[in-house]
Nucleic acid binder design. Structure first.
Lengths: 252, 252
DNA sequence: CGTTATCTTGACGTACATCAAATGTCGTGG
DNA sequence: CCACGACATTTGATGTACGTCAAGATAACG
């Protein structure tokens, strides 16, 4: 069984600009690939009016499982981890969210998950009633949100397959490929995967221990499939080979 | 590693009534607890016009992973299993759907899952463009669908926690409780859980083998937590005790 | 350059998988 | 009603992938 981990959160709250300038949304780097893209440029004022820009320090938890759900979030910079805990400290990370990702649907009055910033995160925070009001006003926005939910559901099913039926090697290969497919602002399409999260996080995402993750990465390296650039960036030397492993053909 | 299973599907197609009477939706048993409840009684004709009532024989697959996604579905009777396969036959069941459940969101042009009837299933089938047209027409319907997607997302996160971090005993206890919490038409709220799916399905849902499922059930029985009524119904003798196990307090 | 956290590597244990066989269940037909 | 398969479930014996425990090796940092 797994040990509780040190949840070393910096207790200083992030900066919380009291109000967003009306053009904040227009200037947002993340808008092109976020749900907000559904709102026409000329209506961005309405969106900005209900958005509060918040900066979260690395390691800071900004959503607590079980708390009354008061907000939706849209990540505009950095990476967030979403997780659930068992009483003895076992943890399952159910997703990593990057710039452009929307957060807060998996809720039933109270949050069903916690969320913590991995690096410095900037996000837009929406009070739930206000955002829901916006859905009434902009049907295209609601449609986009439904699309996002579908996308997340698809990812969740893939993750269930991974957690329920894949080997450690298949899990790590899948993880690296999934990470590589993300639009990371400032990264050209290529084979260098940046991993802002640490090995413990990767383990808790893949249903493995840190040791197994480390050993598996070492083995992929030995097999010439990847190369490490520091411990937080991995180059995919043979994406096709990794794909074959990830999809479970290794055992066929 | 897991073996490919006998996918004994009856190849006879189900009955496909050519058209639905206009009052079909008004008479539907599943409407009160399905997404269709968002459409007002007086507009049910519009819904019925795009719904095709289909009956699926036990064991018949009616959605194939990778096929072009042409339909949405709403289950009105029976139980369906949703699953993903790996090339060597390993299978992960990502959900069981009962009357009132909606199916078809986790899609990206092609279906990301397969769906098979467990018992005799009756469902409403909607061509995707037509249902999407209905969303434009009835915003409340779209809202309801977003709510359903959120609900599914929440369930998916719980399942990820189960698959990634729970023991076999915790998984089976969780499964029984989740099954017991469902609205099963014709079942009074109580402690008798009906299991239309077989042990192999349960194993593939919980990320375990059939043998482990069986042994775990036997042990829960020995411990006085459950009692078997045949092999497809289980009585929860101590729901609170099961809850304690399911939530992982056993190891705390 | 120590100090400390993170990552890697090694030795060993275990929960669950695999392989194999017995038992139970149910439909079918004599 | 009972005998007989065919299949699902349970039980048993054994294997193994990954977890746990314990050091080292590296990297981050003042």
């Amino acid at each position: 069984m797994m040990m509780a981990r040190s949840n070393a959160l910096r207790d200083g709250p992030g900066r919380w600009p009291a109000a967003s300038p009306l053009n904040a949304c227009a200037a947002c780097d993340a808008r092109p690939f976020s749900v907000c893209s559904a709102i026409h440029e000329c209506d961005l004022g309405r969106l900005a009016a209900v958005a509060e820009i918040v900066e979260i320090a690395p390691g800071q938890t900004f959503v607590d499982e079980g708390e009354a759900a008061r907000h939706f979030f849209n990540i505009t910079r950095g990476t967030v981890k979403i997780f659930k805990l068992l009483p003895d400290g076992r943890r399952q990370i159910t997703g990593f969210l990057d710039a452009g990702d929307f957060l807060g649907l998996a809720v039933d009055r109270t949050y069903a998950f916690s969320a913590e910033a991995i690096d410095t995160v900037r996000l837009c925070r929406f009070e739930r009633p206000k955002l829901i009001g916006l859905l009434d006003e902009f049907p295209a926005f609601e449609r986009q949100l439904l699309k996002w939910a579908s996308h997340e559901l698809l990812a969740a099913q893939n993750q269930m397959l991974l957690l329920g039926r894949k080997t450690a090697r298949e899990r790590v290969a899948s993880f690296l490929l999934t990470r590589n497919r993300r639009r990371c602002p400032g990264r050209v399409a290529g084979t260098l995967v940046s991993l802002p999260m640490n090995r413990t996080d990767i383990g808790d995402y893949l249903g493995l221990t840190i040791e197994t993750v480390s050993r598996t990465i070492t083995r992929l390296k030995r097999d010439g499939l990847i190369r490490l650039h520091g411990s937080d960036a991995i180059e995919l030397l043979d994406p096709a080979g990794l794909e074959t492993i990830a999809e479970g053909f290794g055992a066929a």
